[in-house]
Design a protein around this nucleic acid. Structure first.
Lengths: 199, 199, 199, 199
DNA sequence: CATGAATGAGGGTTCATTCAT
DNA sequence: CATGAATGAACCCTCATTCAT
């Protein structure tokens, strides 16, 4: 447990730094360990390289957040509530410079980080797959509930869903629109869009 | 003009390297100048730092592509044709690791590059505004044409539009779906979504 | 006694590692203590530094081996038998990467180990003196026995002796010759050389 | 040629440091470049690693010295003169902590330096072979001249020769003997030994 | 102007040593 | 006492930037 504690302390430090706006590519080991309140050398008792720390930190964070949304969605509710639950979750957990954004960038392929760690990047798909599973379950439940059209290919339904969730992320990054449209209005608009596309 | 030539040569080199899959954060000055076929020191005759080169290169590329889509959209056509024109443009110009993707990442905020250059990042909004203008003109034309509902706030119409364009980018990054759904099917699906949301 | 046991355990570990082919300059404290089966910190209860451990280990090993050859040579025998006894001893005790080789390298001066420990290096001459005593006693006995010429300065006689013993060490390091000449042939050749030089 | 100059400057710096008594294993890149009068980074324009610098420096030095002894031995002379020529050469070129000593230690196998460069160590045998060739030519010439017994296997003749040359090196490292026996006396003694063994 | 050789600041990593348990 | 987790000094190497030619 001690070991896990130290690892987690480093993870939290990485996440905190990212949320503070430090670019992932300019994170220094000393920054991380200082933030974690431990010595520079100590990090190497638990990880073999800086990259290992950062990547595992991202995975740790994303995993934690995915677990959370999973738990939230397990509660019985209808599709509308589920969609708003996801909006709520994104608002608190997947906003800004969080590791969710990092993940998204991984998905678009530009997060290379280092040539030697592409292998690890593949296991990242593990999380993509997890997210995908959540989305597919979401789609399935919507169909079962009778609010999503069953004849539409699930992959396309998922695409439509994701498009509105991405819009929600973008909303937070566009000062201009977030000033003229309230969060609640935006949620209703996006929800309406989903229903128009899939209903 | 000589000067502009050298600058452009450097820009093209940066763009070529990015399209070759080199991560933007691991671009080296020597790589860029070698690719541009000029001496390493020469780059510093025209730019004050590596970051200046790269950022201006991205802007150069994005600007050129925006100019292209502007020109394409100036041709008289209906909304459907305009949407497919944009799809077409994205397919050839904004695919992969292009500067469009980079721009998108700038938009989501994680492309910091360096703490000392945040100021330059702000001028990036210049391009965002340009893109925004294009989109707003697009919306306006759709309304004028009678295919987009006029009562919907333009900012929301734009959001809906962008969501489907983003989905198109994502489509190219998801092997799983790009294998089961053809590009044409996806275009039709996304077009349909736009019409459902805005029509 | 406990204390001595721990020290000896560390010495044996150092010697074992050297005989395993680990370079003396890349020995790590953790390697040594792991091999000795004790905790890393414990080593510092008995020694002030890594270098102290290693140097003392070498001395311990060399001292033990010298004691052995002393004992062997105390048995009454003639010069020829004594020479072959030394060959035999070298074959089993002073071969390979043993501390004898290390000692030899100390003698040729290149084993510095660290600038701060030159003082300790001087005490190393203690062992040189011991070896020297053995050799001088050897020479004296040879003269007394009447097989070594008495008119030759003992220091020179010793030089001649050592030259053939060194050749024996070298023999083990030259695959080319150790394949074409058997150990016994080599011993006879070197013995003959000694007699030619000193007889 | 410029390039070669820089390389040679680094080689000379390494050699000078070694002759100053700095241990080969504690040479720092900054020491070397400071001594060579160039910037630290510059070394990496010509070599890929510190080890490459040091190893090539040793080879450079040994090669140069071997070339010198070759040239000296090419002059027509009898065996006695050749032996004294080698003594002379050792006195000026192969004394002390020179790269010759380093080479000798490589030969006895304890110069590991680094695990990743064992391959290069094999090419070191190139020099061993060169030295061997010189010695074998020496033996052959002695036999042809009629001063070395032809019936003795060349490998054994070489062993005998080397034993006395090694004794000469040792002589310089033993204050005790170098104080009581003059260099010339030692040379005559060792020469006499060679003739007794091989004549 | 154009160059690329030279530079050195900066950062990742190792490992001897310490000290709280 | 014994331990091994924690530490940070030390060092190799990279690469953006400079400047003499």
């Amino acid at each position: 447990m001690e070991v896990a504690d130290k690892k987690v302390a480093l993870f939290e430090a990485v996440i905190a730094l990212i949320e503070d706006g430090v670019d992932i590519n300019s994170l220094k080991v000393s920054d991380i360990t200082n933030r974690a309140g431990i010595g520079k050398g100590t990090a190497y008792e638990y990880f073999r390289s800086k990259e290992e720390i950062i990547i595992q930190a991202l995975f740790y964070d994303v995993g934690r957040r995915i677990e959370k949304i999973r738990r939230l969605l397990r509660q019985n509710m209808n599709t509308r509530d589920r969609i708003f639950t996801i909006f709520q979750w994104m608002e608190t957990d997947a906003r800004q410079k969080s590791s969710f954004t990092q993940l998204f960038q991984m998905a678009t392929g530009s997060f290379e980080f280092s040539n030697s760690l592409k292998e690890k990047m593949d296991s990242q798909e593990g999380y993509c797959r997890e997210i995908n599973e959540i989305l597919m379950a979401f789609v399935e439940a919507g169909v079962k509930e009778g609010v999503f059209r069953p004849e539409l290919a699930p992959a396309l339904q998922r695409t439509a869903l994701v498009s509105q969730f991405m819009s929600f992320v973008l909303y937070f990054h566009q000062e201009e629109i977030s000033e003229s449209v309230s969060v609640e209005q935006m949620k209703e608009f996006l929800y309406g869009n989903i229903m128009k596309m899939l209903g």
